[in-house]
Design a protein around this nucleic acid. Structure first.
Lengths: 202, 202
DNA sequence: ATTATATTTGACCAATTGGTTAAATCATGT
DNA sequence: ACATGATTTAACCAATTGGTCAAATATAAT
């Protein structure tokens, strides 16, 4: 049935997302994805003809689930500090739900830049308007002057790296204590928010 | 000759580093490494018996070239702000020379955590003493109080992410203008230094 | 010249892996 | 009961890939 069909399809996509995000396109095995989805390889190819097509779909999903939503926050008419605070909280939340996505995107983009960047283009992602927003907010109030690009990348760095770098950071700085690192990430929203807002104070 | 021998060996290691760092363990092909080194596959296996052994050597090198040196800066007896400034400048310099290393380390560590983390253990990397240093410096002067772990990860994030995320950031925010992004990264040392030091001001 | 080592060449093997196929079975709605 | 599509099973194929081997050649030291 169509019900079963879409059900299996999403089961496949979710399984493929997990495997691809953890092991990358080249590291992932179709058999492993089939196992993770609880089906067999034949059915996997029955739904997605090739590894490449399946991967592209997963990559598309990762970007669509991840990139938008950010825009909305930045376009509310509130002071910059509040805007930053909202963004950091919201973005950290999304990150914690999809901790492997940033690394996944960057790694795959390095492997096949031109083709995969098309996915961004198709998704209509355009940070220039976001940058303009940040720029306007920066001029209004009495903050230190700062290149909006640097500010934006600073915020992204502070949010993304601790999540993406977890396999290294948790082991090297937290004795591989998963719970301690969870707690660290949880409290991090406040820390980053304070850090950024303070850095902007003149 | 021993001369030729070591010469070829380093040629192989450098080639393997480039290929492994860009494509990862699973994405790299022995043939590609041989080509990049200007030799053939048989000779490649003559020097390094297996892909696994070659990879492990490359991973070891990446860590040894990368992690140390940081320590030395942080142990000089200078005020925290100056220490941070030195660190950021030095670390950014190393990063620009090895832009693929952080992603490489994190990605591979995710693939095979337990085994690869051994390389860190063998290298005797221990951030606890570094953390103590930062903690002491934080208490001495009139800064905002702050968890040294968060501070350290903030600094690392601000340095590493813009370099590691280049394949995405350059395309999405700089119209894929490589020179513009170079310039952006060059001026970034000052920006990050100011940003961090300002964020710590009470 | 001889020896030893480095290097090349090209063929080759075994295992893995993406992908296919055909037939059987299961489930469901009509 | 019948038809239809979902799913399984298991065998299979072709290409890739890590790795091996043996013989030929080059290079230098002795």
């Amino acid at each position: 049935m169509a019900d079963q069909s879409t059900n299996t399809q999403t089961k496949i996509l979710e399984a493929a997302s997990r495997v691809f995000q953890r092991k990358g396109m080249e590291g992932a095995r179709m058999q492993e994805i089939a196992d993770e989805a609880g089906i067999n390889k034949a059915l996997l190819h029955y739904y997605y003809r090739s590894k490449d097509k399946l991967f592209l779909e997963v990559f598309r999903l990762a970007i669509h689930d991840f990139i938008p939503g950010i825009r909305d926050i930045l376009f509310r008419d509130v002071p910059l500090t509040q805007k930053l605070d909202h963004f950091i909280r919201e973005y950290m939340r999304v990150l914690l739900e999809n901790p492997f996505v940033p690394m996944f995107i960057i790694h795959e983009l390095q492997r096949d830049p031109d083709r995969l960047f098309q996915v961004f283009v198709e998704a209509g992602i355009d940070p220039s308007e976001i940058l303009q927003q940040v720029e306007r907010s920066l001029k209004d109030n009495d903050h230190r002057s700062m290149d909006p690009k640097h500010l934006m990348i600073n915020v992204l760095s502070l949010c993304i790296f601790p999540v993406a770098g977890r396999p290294l950071l948790q082991r090297i700085m937290f004795d591989n204590d998963g719970r301690a690192y969870e707690a660290f990430l949880e409290e991090r929203y406040q820390v980053v928010s304070n850090f950024v807002i303070n850095a902007l104070q003149s």
